[in-house]
Design a protein around this nucleic acid. Structure first.
Length: 285
DNA sequence: CGCAGGCCCTGGTAGC
DNA sequence: TGCTACCAGGGCCTGC
């Protein structure tokens, strides 16, 4: 469930803990966690030993740690990935996948991931922007994100608006939770065809996406259970502010109509039947 | 090329 | 009580 606000919260925490520190050793505990690193675990560890972490950066839901070698550790939390700082000697977490030990003997960085949808890789020469994620669009919090380009690209699509919001090549950082929240704020049903949105409607939707991401980031993200936590193991509080996601049967915060749940893209979508009526004309596929 | 859908994965929980 | 089925879903891959 980590989307942009959760990943940004992790980035901010991580940055204060690892910037300027030299990696001594890296231990890969589960091969699936580095499956995107084709040369394998020993190569992964060898490329990191002795390197100093310069920063922690993010685009959309991806994080990367630029290194003094010009390479970067690139990571995605998937559904359940956590990056935790732990004092050496702390008992291993049940789903510990990768451990970073630092030369200063201070807190370790641990990648813990129950469902193993997340993973780490070393991006060669990827300190500035890993080539592996160059195809991902900028996220809406990026100062160089172009609202006009996004609106134009959205309206060129021949799909449904929720699908478009989840397409990381169009706009990155939005997942199922914040897509539903932004659509609720914009009073749009997720099945609305993108090519039928007016420019002002598309711009308004983008504004709501940005607003909800910013508000959630301010509260440290959304947590439903212990699967999403910051680097100190703490949960975010934005779940208290949700208006649509996970609120099936509860009254809409605007009109009181019970929120409905629909199957959509093999997952759940939550919306208000009154504020967000289903489109009469479905999107062309 | 653009879009849709299947698959990966595991712990918690609902239901029998 | 103990078993099974189902659910959460981001990104990669394939096929149309």
């Amino acid at each position: 469930m980590p989307e942009l606000p959760e990943v940004e919260t992790v980035r901010q925490g991580l940055r204060t803990w690892v910037t300027g520190r030299r990696i001594e050793t890296v231990e890969v505990r589960h091969p699936r966690a580095i499956r995107r690193h084709a040369p394998g675990a020993s190569h992964f560890a060898a490329m990191l030993a002795g390197r100093t972490v310069l920063d922690v950066r993010r685009r959309g839901k991806y994080l990367w740690l630029p290194l003094d070698s010009g390479d970067a550790v690139l990571g995605h939390l998937g559904m359940s990935g956590q990056l935790l700082m732990q004092p050496p000697g702390t008992p291993d977490e049940p789903h510990l996948r990768v451990r970073f030990v630092f030369a200063d003997g201070g807190p370790e960085l641990r990648f813990v991931d129950q469902r193993t949808f997340g993973g780490l890789t070393v991006s060669e020469g990827g300190a500035e922007l890993p080539a592996e994620i160059a195809h991902i669009a900028r996220d809406p919090m990026d100062p160089e994100f172009s609202d006009a380009d996004f609106v134009a690209a959205l309206r060129r699509r021949r799909t449904e608006v929720k699908r478009a919001l989840l397409d990381q090549t169009l706009i990155s950082g939005v997942g199922n939770i914040y897509a539903d929240e932004a659509l609720w704020r914009a009073r749009l049903h997720g099945a609305r065809p993108t090519d039928a949105l007016t420019r002002p409607a598309a711009l308004r939707l983008l504004g709501h996406v940005r607003d909800v991401l910013a508000a959630a980031t301010k509260q440290g993200g959304t947590s439903f259970d212990a699967l999403y936590v910051n680097v100190n193991g703490e949960s975010g509080y934005f779940d208290r502010s949700l208006s649509a996601y996970g609120r099936e049967g509860l009254p809409c915060h605007r009109c009181g109509t019970p929120i409905r749940r629909e199957a959509f893209m093999n997952r759940s979508s939550f919306s208000c039947p009154r504020c967000q009526p289903r489109p009469r004309i479905p999107a062309r596929g």
